[in-house]
Amino acid sequence: MNKAAMKRMTRRTEFYMFLVLIILIAVIGIVSKGSLFESTQIVTILRAMVVDGMFAMCCLVVMVSGGFDMSFPAIAALAYSLATTICLNQGWCQTSPIAGFALSIVFGAILGMFNGWIISNFKLNTMLVTLGTQTFFTGVSMGLLQLREITSTLPVALKKFGLSSLFEVTNSAGLKSTMTTMFIFLVILCAVTSFVLNKTMFGRALYAIGGNEVSAERAGYNVKKTKFILYTVVGAVSGFIGMIRVCMASQSIPKAMVNKEFTIIPAVILGGASIFGGEGSVFGTVTAIGIITLVNNSMLLVGIDSYWKDFFNGLIILIGVTVSALQAMRKKH
C-alpha cells in the first residue's frame, strides 16, 4: 500500500469506526470474561443485526444520493401489517411464506413510489417530504385501515419461516443456539447494495447526484428518473425487511417500527455517510450497525444498567452528526 492510499484510508470515517468496533469487541470481551466470544452470544448479536442492518442499507443508498428518508419504517410497518392482515383473512401463507413477502414488497414499492413521485417531481426537501409521508402512512395504518396486532394467529408458514435456521452452535456450557435463516438476507442485501453502489452506473449516479445534482444532470444522468427508481426500490426493500421482522418476531405489530429511523439514520451517518450526500459505504454502515447492536446487546453482559441505553444511543447521534458536519467544514476550507 503506497503512502497516498494509506493517507486516504486514514481520512475515512469507516477506518476509525472499524477501529472503534475492534476496540469495543476487545473491551467487552475482556469485561464479560469471554462471554462475548461464546458461539451462542455471537449468533445472538448477528441475529439482532439483521433488521437494523438491512434498514441501514436502504438508508445508506438514500443518503448517498443526498436525500433523507424518514419514512422507511412507516412504509415497512404499513406494508407488512397490510400483507399479514390480507394473508390472515384469505387464509394464505399456510405452506409457503411467499405470498406474504410478495404482498409486502408490492405495498412497499407502491408507498415508495409515492415518495419518489413527490420528491422527483416537485424537487422538495426529501427530509420534509418523507417526514410528511411517514406521518401519513402511519395515519393510514392506524386510522384509515385500523390495522391491528396479529400475534398467535399469524399464518403458520410465516412463523415457521421465522423459526427456520441455517445452523446450530453449541457453547462451552453445552447451550445450543441456532442462526436464523434471515441472516442470509442481510448478507445478500449488503452484497447487492455494495455491487449496485460500486459497480453499476445507477449506483454511481447516486454518488454523482449526491455530490452535485446540477453536474449530474449536465453529465447526462436522468436525475428525476433515478430518484424515482431509488425511492421505489427502497420502498419495496423496506416492505421485504418488514416481513422479515414479522417472521423473526412471530408477530405483526403495526407500531413495532415507530422511531426506528432515529436509530438507523444516525448509525448510517456514524458509518461515514455524509448528511450532505455523496459519501458512504456498505462497509462503514455495517460497521456502525455492528457497534450499535454490539453495545445494545452487551450492556447487561458487562453489567451496565439499561438506563444507559438511551444515553449511549443519544451519544451516537451526536457523534455521528458532529463528525459529518466537521468533515463537511474541513472540505469547505
Binding site: S35, T40, Q41, T44, N171, A249, Q251, L301
Partner: peptide
C-alpha cells in the same frame, strides 16, 4: 418489545449459565 425481550433473555442466559 418481544424481539428485545428475546435478545435480553439470550444475553442473560449467556451471562448466567
Amino acid at each position: 418489545d418481544a424481539e428485545i425481550a428475546y435478545n435480553r433473555t439470550k444475553e442473560m442466559i449467556q451471562k448466567y449459565p
